[in-house]
Design a binder for these strands. Structure first.
Length: 778
DNA sequence: TCAAAGCGCGTTTTT
DNA sequence: CGCGCTTTGA
């Protein structure tokens, strides 16, 4: 083979090279965990450019997360140099936004559309609920939104949903879906799912647009292919249908987004859909020791729905996987963190990751980290862009950019307080719907709103404020938007750059006295009174809120005010502010989902308990497929570890102020005991530790610590002793500290305590444990 | 109109 | 336990 830069590919193994050199036609790369798939992808791109003379401009690499996209761009830069900037490497969502900003007018939207996040969706749905009380009685916004999202994942339109709905509930959901979509359109807004779906719609209805992108994107690669849903698949199928140079990389064992509509069929049946697909399996793991891989393989082999594969490594041996048991969640946190702290003395804290199933679990660890002085980096959790103050500022910017965005207008019209209350908002709202105009337009005509009175002046002061910003600062000119190029962090972002491929790019940062997005934010802080509002709220958080805004401002400094839209779109699609400087020595805390695609020397997986992993929902559903997804999640976590994996669980745990006995996770019981390094008796692991499950404490919504052990410092263990036989019996009247008087209905002897059923005069029948309830005989 | 106080409800996971 | 939502009272 005639290869210019042969050395580059010599480091790859045989299979990896196959994948890299196979450039034409459909290719499915089944890449096990740690098999170097990202490496293969970037080498494949390098090969296309350097050996096949493909223009970087003709290559698209789609990822699932911003993190992955950034990493890919970074590594490509190292491999192919500045040309890497021409490659279209982005997430599904940002790719779609980029396309829609140019062409969505074909679908009757304005190109300055807003993007609604989960919060905005909920707010919008709430408004719909108010408007349609008959259809929404005892429904929850969330559930309806989930149903809508499920429709969208499958590319089902509201009219189809309505057509095929059976039963009242489904019909109703479909109806709400229809309403929701029309509201979005009114607001000139799209939700996350729409970003994909509108793009598909655009391509299906506009052949010329599709052709334009097909011609440009001659080689398409999709990372984490197992996580694509039906609509994402359709999008890729459309783009690749003419040249068919589609390469997808995935691992069915790491599919962990089924809940979000990821269709595992996309990977299982890829070969059927794309004729003459070549399949390459990457099964050599370069990341973990055999000890770790053995454990992971044993767990995942319990899944029925999977492509059989044998992940292997030549790193023989390695430290056994550790299993640790703790009395409670608190001790688990201290125990694990102490161990990490002492181990980290010899290596770097950066080598450690602490993984958990739910974000809620992070709190305990955060507190302890603070106590012990362990620096940590929390990935995920409350998103920077979801914080109140940031959302407020962004909402102002959205209003300035797209005044049709009612949700944004409503968010800020009375923040800071302008004396425009619920009643007035209602009046504006009904005026708006009566004349079929947007909320903001109604505000502009506030003096015409019946019985609005003096509030009209207050409304005017708000619209004046917005209008001034639009005229003097943003200079909103929609035709301008696609004709600009953004500089981001000193790099040319490849937004719209296809149009500018051969032109000189002006350095916007140098161009003197232009207004910037940051100026608009300062205007909101100063003239809008937002700073005073924050300070007057006076809570301890005010300072940190201002800090957050400052961070936003520094980002906004890089954008010309006329590029407000682009600023907004970047901020709405970014999951986490990318200030994670890797140079600092920090322990990483994150969810199992967040860990996908990463690796660490030492991985600690905590909360390895039934009802946590697998989580309650997946157990309760009774659907084995849900359990399999949890098992894959467990597998993903385990395969992050390079050198050592430590699993831990707590025997009991405080949950929602209640107090649960936990059973060790079934996934741990799936590991052959000889593979584990543990003090715990292995028989127990085999049979499962048989404790009484999920004792519901005494009808309390309160923490037993608080009720009976106030004096105990936080963190001290609460010990349950087998309690004495109570001095009351069925039929007796008793008194409870909270519920007052009641009649004992029954007493049942349990393993550790007596379970008492009491009929309280005020609060009805409650079941409680005698040891906690502290009932007094009357 | 708004702040303070009370109630109920909860948990996957993310672009 | 906490959060967010609703009710309540000024």
């Amino acid at each position: 083979m005639d290869i210019k830069n042969k050395i580059l590919y010599d480091k790859l193994n045989e299979r990896q090279r196959q994948a890299v050199f196979c450039t034409e036609g459909p290719l499915l790369i089944l890449a096990g965990a740690g098999s170097g798939k990202t490496n293969v992808l970037i080498h494949r791109i390098a090969y296309l450019i350097q050996e096949k003379n493909i223009e970087p401009y003709n290559i698209m690499a789609v990822t699932f997360t911003n993190k992955a996209a950034d990493e890919m761009k970074e590594r490509l830069k190292g491999l192919v140099g500045h040309e890497a900037q021409q490659i279209w490497a982005a997430t599904f969502h940002s790719s779609c936004v980029r396309i829609l900003r140019r062409y969505i007018d074909r679908l009757g939207f304005n190109t300055n559309f807003s993007i609604y996040d989960a919060d905005d969706q909920k707010t919008l749905m709430k408004r719909i609920f108010k408007e349609m009380p008959a259809n929404t009685a005892d429904l929850k916004e969330r559930n309806v939104l989930r149903a809508i999202s499920a429709y969208k994942d499958e590319l089902i339109s509201p009219s189809d949903a309505l057509k095929y709905a059976c039963g009242f509930a489904e019909k109703n959901n479909a109806l709400l879906y229809e309403k929701y979509q029309s509201e979005l359109r009114k607001n000139n807004a799209l939700d996350f799912d729409d970003l994909i779906n509108k793009c598909v719609e655009l391509f299906e209805k506009n052949e010329d647009v599709l052709e334009f992108y097909q011609k440009r994107l001659k080689y398409i690669m999709v990372d984490e292919y197992q996580d694509t849903n039906t609509s994402q698949f359709r999008l890729i199928e459309l783009l690749a249908s003419s040249h068919k140079n589609l390469c997808v990389v995935g691992d069915d064992d790491q599919s962990i987004y089924r809940f979000r509509g990821a269709n595992i069929e996309n990977i299982l049946s890829f070969e059927k859909i794309f004729k003459d697909t070549k399949v390459v399996r990457l099964e050599q793991n370069y990341r973990s020791t055999a000890a770790i891989l053995d454990v992971a393989n044993n767990v995942i082999s319990n899944n029925v729905k999977r492509k059989e594969k044998k992940l292997w490594t030549d790193k023989k041996g390695g430290a056994k996987v550790k299993l640790k048991e703790f009395e409670n969640g608190d001790q688990e946190a201290s125990g694990i963190l102490k161990e990490i702290a002492s181990k980290a003395k010899k290596s770097s804290l950066n080598d450690f990751a602490l993984l958990y199933r739910t974000n809620a679990q992070s709190r305990l660890f955060e507190e302890k980290c603070v106590n012990y002085g362990i620096p940590y980096r929390l990935v995920g959790g409350v998103n920077f862009y979801q914080r109140k103050e940031i959302k407020d500022i962004l909402a102002y910017l959205k209003v300035i950019s797209n005044s049709k965005d009612d949700i944004a207008v409503l968010r800020v019209i009375n923040t800071p307080k302008r004396g425009i209350g619920e009643t007035s908002l209602g009046k504006i709202s009904s005026f708006a719907s009566e004349f079929n105009i947007n909320f903001y337009e109604a505000c502009l005509n506030s003096w015409q709103i019946p019985s609005i009175g003096k509030t009209a002046y207050k409304i005017k002061s708000f619209t004046d404020f917005i209008e001034k910003a639009r005229k003097e600062l943003a200079k909103i000119d929609i035709s301008d938007i696609s004709d600009n190029i953004v500089y981001k962090n000193g790099d040319m972002d490849n937004f719209y750059n296809e149009a500018y491929k051969d032109t000189d790019i002006p350095d916007l940062l140098q161009s003197g006295d232009d207004k910037r997005v940051s100026d608009i934010i300062n205007y909101i802080l100063d003239e809008g009174g937002y700073r005073d509002y924050l300070m007057l709220e006076g809570d301890t958080q005010a300072q940190s809120r201002l800090e957050n805004i400052k961070e936003l401002i520094s980002k906004a400094q890089m954008y010309k005010a006329s590029l407000l839209d682009i600023f907004l779109e970047e901020t709405s699609l970014i999951a986490d502010v990318d200030t994670t400087d890797k140079s600092a020595q920090m322990l990483t805390l994150m969810t199992l989902h967040g860990a996908k695609g990463l690796e660490f020397e030492y991985v600690y997986m905590c909360g390895m308990e039934e009802e946590l992993l697998p989580c309650t929902m997946s157990i309760a559903s009774g659907d084995e497929a849900d359990i399999e997804e949890e098992r894959r999640l467990c597998y993903v976590g385990m395969t992050r570890a390079k050198k050592q994996l430590v699993l831990s669980y707590a025997k009991k745990r405080l949950i929602n102020g209640g107090f649960d006995y936990k059973e060790v996770s079934r996934f741990i019981r799936e590991i052959p005991p000889q593979l584990l390094d543990t003090d715990i008796k292995n028989e127990l692991l085999h049979q499962g530790i048989n404790r009484k499950k999920s004792v519901y404490i005494a009808g309390y919504n309160t923490n037993p610590y608080k009720q009976f052990n106030k004096s105990l410092p936080f963190g001290k263990e609460f010990i349950v002793k087998k309690s004495e036989k109570p001095d009351y019996k069925a039929g007796d009247m008793v008194r409870h500290i909270k519920f007052g008087e009641g009649e004992v209905l029954s007493i049942t002897e349990g393993k550790k305590d007596y379970e008492i059923e009491v009929n309280f005069k005020k609060s009805g029948i409650k079941k409680m444990m005698a040891g906690f309830a502290k009932l007094e005989k009357m």
